[in-house]
């Protein structure tokens, strides 16, 4: 019942993973960095699903659920920080060039 073999699945996940990784490295805009991180985390989740499917266990998918929730938490906190960051900018508190 497994249409796709494990190796192909892993290859897809790693391609997705590396696109996210390159996204983080190249893009200067912090929002886009968060997006790329999301991609990377989902890629890892995908790999888990494939692994789970390989062994016919549900663990992989459960793991994917957890990954989704934590990724969401991270992005939320990230966005909150960014908003606070720009509010400070309006009150012209000096900014270190971290990007």
């Amino acid at each position: 019942m497994i249409a796709i073999s494990l190796n192909t699945g892993l290859i897809i996940a790693s391609i997705m993973f590396f696109t996210g990784l390159i996204g983080v490295m190249i893009r200067k805009n912090i929002m886009f960095m968060l997006i790329s991180i999301e991609i990377m985390l989902n890629a890892a989740g995908l790999a888990f699903v494939f692994a789970g499917a390989q062994h016919g266990q549900a663990d992989g998918q459960i793991m994917f659920l957890f990954i989704l929730t934590t990724a969401a938490a991270e992005v939320a906190v990230g966005l909150a920080l960014i908003i606070q960051f720009y509010q400070n900018l309006k009150r012209s508190i000096p900014m270190l060039p971290i990007i």
Partner: peptide
């Protein structure tokens, strides 16, 4: 350098 993207390069 203080640049985040350099640090990611470090990790990679």
């Amino acid at each position: 350098t203080g640049k985040v993207r350099r640090y990611v390069v470090g990790i990679v």
